[in-house]
């Protein structure tokens, strides 16, 4: 699990630089770069907040992200254990999303599975 998230401190969005795009060919191939250069977390015009998958997954382990949200509605089988008879069993409100996938299997693109449809 990446820990990038914890190490990063919030900073202001860099000052805006305008880059005019008149042709699709001027757009960068890589979605994490911008025309005229790379600005992390920003896009042409400089205001889009971009995060890649690995970074987002890294934030999952921060303490804030683990506390239950306020006002979470209780929907049996969706936000709370499936049915009354399982209420007092091992689940204890723990839902499958909370059980992180096996180590190393959910960070980085190299671990992506092949879909066979």
């Amino acid at each position: 699990m990446s820990t990038d998230c914890k190490k990063t401190t919030a900073t202001d969005i860099p000052s805006t630089r305008r880059v005019s795009i008149n042709d699709a060919a001027h757009m960068p191939l890589d979605y994490s770069t911008t025309p005229g250069g790379t600005l992390f977390s920003t896009t042409p015009g400089g205001t889009r907040i971009i995060y890649d998958r690995k970074f987002l997954l890294g934030c999952r382990s921060s303490p804030v992200a683990k506390t239950p949200p306020r006002g979470l509605p209780k929907i049996p089988g969706v936000t709370s254990p499936p049915s009354k008879d399982t209420d007092e069993k091992a689940h204890n409100g723990e839902l499958p999303n909370n059980v992180t996938a096996p180590d190393g299997s959910n960070t980085g693109d190299d671990s992506q599975f092949e879909i066979d449809i």
Partner: peptide, 22 residues
């Protein structure tokens, strides 16, 4: 259709997501 909740940050997203079934 039921509203589960609104979030504004990456961390708030994970709060909801981690407390919802897959």
């Amino acid at each position: 259709i039921k509203q589960i909740g609104i979030f504004a940050s990456v961390e708030q997203f994970w709060r909801f997501y981690s407390h919802m079934i897959r």
